[in-house]
Each structure stands twice: as C-alpha cells, then as structure tokens.
C-alpha cells in the first residue's frame, strides 16, 4: 500500500498494485479498506472515492487535527490512514457481501448501432456477441466519468473492442457499450466513445434517490436479454 498526495487537499491510497492480475481480489481489498476508513470517520476528511485499485481521500487541511503543529496535514493524515489499514486484515478479506442486480438489456439492431463493428472486430457472429455479452458475470469496478456511469469488469475477453476513433456527440440514455475490455451503461444522454450494442430501459441515476445511483462499486451485475417489444413497453 502506498499513499500519494493529489494536490494539497486530497490524497490517493494505492491499496493494491495490480488490478488485472485478480480484479475480484483487488476490488474486495479496496472495498474493505473503504469500509474501515468510513468507520474511522477521520475528522477533516470530506469524501472517499474508490476506483479500481485506489481510494481518493478528500480532506480539508485546515480541519485536520494534528497534535504537533509543525506536522503537515498530509503527513498526519497519511500516518493515520496507514495505522487504520495496517490494523485491519483487509488484504486477505474473504468475499465481500455484494448485491446481485439484474439489468434488462435489449440488443435489437435499432438500439445497437455498433453491434456490427463489434462482431467484425471480434470475428464473432452478431448473435454470438449478444449471447456472450448477455451471459457474462459482471462486477462494478467503479462509478464515475459522468454521474452514475458504472464501469463493469468481467467482460468475456474475446469481446474486447477498442473505443471508437471519434466519440459520438450524443449517446442515448441507457445505452450499453463496450470500451476496450470493459462494458458499461450510459446513465443519461451524453457524449461517448464506447461501442453501443444494446440499451436498458432502466434509469440508473436519479438525483431524487439516495444514493442517486442504482449501482455501487462492488455490486454484481447480470444482464437479461429482453425483446424490443418488452423494451418499448417497459415501465420501471
């Protein structure tokens, strides 16, 4: 574990070194560390932001209570974090309790403008791309980039497809895409460069809900293929 400053009011904890070697274990370690830090509720810390192998810790240097006034707030806080995490056995944490969420996805051509490109790049039939994508077991690595966007790990490796050379100006809300070795869902209409292979009628981000996102880092996700008719008549 390493702790590095991100400017003067945030720091990054590098919880594990290598995500690719074991994404499941990396995520479990990050989520366990996140849990210990939340429970510690360190005064002056304003936000914790997990992503893949790291946790961003945002703090107010003027509110960090170091006993020794000569000690810089960063030094005090990173020592505090070290001691909290060293006292915890999170690196060998067993499976973290994670909810399984089912997301209905319609892979109809009309909602999947890049299905043909993905089939071509992966050298698979379109129906096979759909079958493999819909049967994958996924996990939310992090939520970010835009509000409520879940980055899902667990894409069958043969479906990996590079992002589009020129991003679209407008990707419809609910679009399910492949970007490199990951898959994700656009929570709202926004620009984007991922290959769009389907769409969910679910609303993934709602400012009137707490939390505002349907999916949280660590959640397990399965897709359920639905027909165009079911998509069109869907009411959440």
């Amino acid at each position: 574990m390493r702790i590095e400053p991100l400017g003067d009011s945030a720091l990054i904890i590098r919880v594990v070194d290598d995500f690719a070697r074991d994404p499941e274990a990396s995520l479990n370690a990050v989520l366990a560390a996140l849990g210990y830090l939340k429970a510690a509720a360190i005064p002056g810390v304003t936000e914790l932001a997990p992503a893949y192998t790291t946790i961003g810790v945002f703090y107010d240097p003027a509110r960090i209570e170091s006993a020794d006034s000569d000690q810089a707030p960063f030094d005090f806080l990173s020592a505090k974090i070290q001691s909290i995490l060293n006292a915890s056995s999170f690196e060998n944490e067993a499976e973290i309790e994670a909810p399984l969420i089912e997301i209905p996805v319609c892979y109809d051509r009309g909602l999947a403008p890049d299905l043909g490109d993905v089939a071509r790049v992966t050298d698979l039939a379109e129906a096979e791309v759909i079958r493999r994508h819909a049967s994958g077991a996924y996990r939310v690595s992090c939520v970010g980039f835009i509000a409520g966007f879940p980055f899902l790990s667990g894409l069958p490796p043969e479906l990996a497809t590079p992002r589009r050379a020129a991003p679209r100006k407008e990707v419809p809300a609910g679009s399910v895409g492949i970007g490199g070795g990951q898959t994700g869902i656009y929570p709202r209409t926004s620009p984007g460069g991922w290959n769009l292979i389907g769409r969910t009628p679910l609303r993934l981000f709602d400012v009137h809900c707490d939390p505002p996102t349907m999916l949280q880092a660590g959640d397990r996700v399965r897709f359920r293929e639905i027909s165009r008719k079911e998509f069109d008549s869907f009411s959440p």
Binding site: L6, G7, S9, A10, I12, F19, A49, A51, Y52, T53, T54, I55, G56, F58, C142, G144, F145, I146, F151
Partner: peptide
C-alpha cells in the same frame, strides 16, 4: 487505470497538451 482527480489537477492526454481541471471536472 482511472482514479480520482480533483479541481486543480493538471492532466495530460496523449496529445501532450495539459488540461487544468476546474470545479465541474469528472470524478475519475
């Protein structure tokens, strides 16, 4: 891998031209 960024971060895309992130910047 994507990780936390914050207002003030100077990030550099592959074209080598830095972007100074401000308040509405993405979270990661």
């Amino acid at each position: 891998l994507s990780e936390a960024v914050a207002p003030g971060t100077l990030q550099v895309p592959p074209n080598g031209k830095p972007i100074l992130l401000l308040g509405d910047c993405q979270t990661i």
